[in-house]
């Protein structure tokens, strides 16, 4: 760490150009600095993007949706009146992250790219994430591990905003080293360990997240982010859920956090349609539907030795959240 260089980038183009191997992007530093101190990453150069003009901008309109710069701080997103009014699930997810001090410096881009909180990985024990050949957690204390999409690494993705953004069908704009940009859906941004072991995203070397866009389609639609934690504050989710209603067809988009190595989007096609008739909603039918949906959502989940509670918890959370719309 002594020979660590520091560069203040003035544009994303410039930043991407500096991201040769051995360079790391520094924004808020709330994840990177502990990783540095624990020796889990050893970059030779830090490229600071916090001063790039416009990198922290937040613009929200009903027509245009939301455009949020990668270096926008979670506090600012959570408090932004437009975000709160039109995308309350995102505001709630940002507000639920860490502590106020962390949200005051942590950025959205950094939050989406943060590394897993797996006890083993963070303790410096050799594992797939740190270049090792096995998953010690799978054979050890597995109560925090994934119930969906796990293997060969089972660490869950820790982000809250990613879950809300996934349900909101957000897009990510990525700047490449050659200066070009590409856009991808958040669903395609994340990958499973079966695809890629060293990272949780499909971000390639020399690529940097520049902006997050939330489509106008869901602006102002009924939506909610719910998070279950052990402690009342400063905790990652045991399980979290984002539910966002499509306005026209009135179907929910549901994403889960804390259950899989990536933020987990449910396949809407596999879920039954909600019982809505012209006369409104029948609470009993709605409840039955919510229970059925929760069951469908967790189909294919698999418990290890001691994380089975997450299946029940996720079902209950989905059901509970959907029941909020039992009556119009």
């Amino acid at each position: 760490m002594d020979s660590l260089g520091f560069h203040r980038a003035s544009s994303f183009e410039e930043a991407a150009g500096l991201l040769h191997s051995g360079a790391a992007v520094l924004a808020g530093g709330t994840d990177l600095v502990p990783l540095l101190k624990d020796g889990l990453v050893k970059p030779s150069l830090l490229v600071f993007i916090g001063d790039i003009p416009g990198a922290a901008s937040i613009s929200v309109t009903r027509r245009g949706g939301a455009r949020i710069g990668a270096a926008a701080k979670l506090t600012d997103i959570a408090n932004n009146p437009g975000v709160r009014r039109l995308f309350p699930a995102l505001a709630e997810a940002c507000r639920s992250v860490g502590t106020l001090q962390i949200r005051n410096v942590a950025t959205l881009g950094g939050n989406l790219c943060q590394r897993p909180r797996c006890w083993y990985y963070r303790s410096g024990i050799a594992c797939f994430k740190s270049g090792g050949e096995s998953c010690p957690a799978r054979d050890g204390l597995d109560e925090a591990l994934a119930i969906l999409g796990g293997g060969p690494c089972w660490a869950v993705h820790p982000s809250d905003p990613a879950v809300a953004l996934l349900a909101l069908d957000a897009k990510i704009t990525i700047r490449r080293a050659d200066g070009s940009v590409r856009e991808t859906s958040l669903a395609d941004f994340y990958c499973l360990p079966s695809d890629r072991l060293d990272r949780e995203t499909r971000l390639d070397a020399g690529e940097i997240v520049e902006r997050i866009t939330v489509p106008a389609r869901y602006a102002g639609s009924p939506q909610r982010y719910a998070k279950v934690t052990q402690r009342a504050a400063w905790d990652f989710a045991l399980v979290s859920a984002a539910v966002v209603w499509e306005k026209r067809r009135f179907r929910p988009r549901i994403a889960l956090g804390g259950v899989a190595p990536r933020p987990w989007l449910l396949d809407t096609a596999r879920l039954s349609d909600p019982p809505v008739s012209r006369r409104g909603r029948d609470p009993t039918a709605w409840e039955l539907w919510a229970i059925r949906t929760a069951e469908q959502a967790l189909r294919g989940s698999r418990a290890l030795s001691s994380n089975g509670y997450k299946i029940e918890l996720a079902k209950n959370l989905i059901r509970r959240t959907l029941l909020e719309w039992r009556r119009v």
């Binding site: 006890w119 303790s123 050890g140 052990q230 402690r231 009342a232 504050a233 400063w234």
Partner: peptide
């Protein structure tokens, strides 16, 4: 009663939560 415990891996014989986040003491919100 609610949060605190030292987590230890039985096979490797090492503690896993040597920090103030994963070792959870009550916060003001609790």
């Amino acid at each position: 009663a609610l949060f605190e415990r030292r987590l230890q891996d039985r096979r490797l014989g090492v503690p896993l939560n040597c920090g103030l986040h994963e070792y959870k003491v009550p916060t003001l919100a609790d």
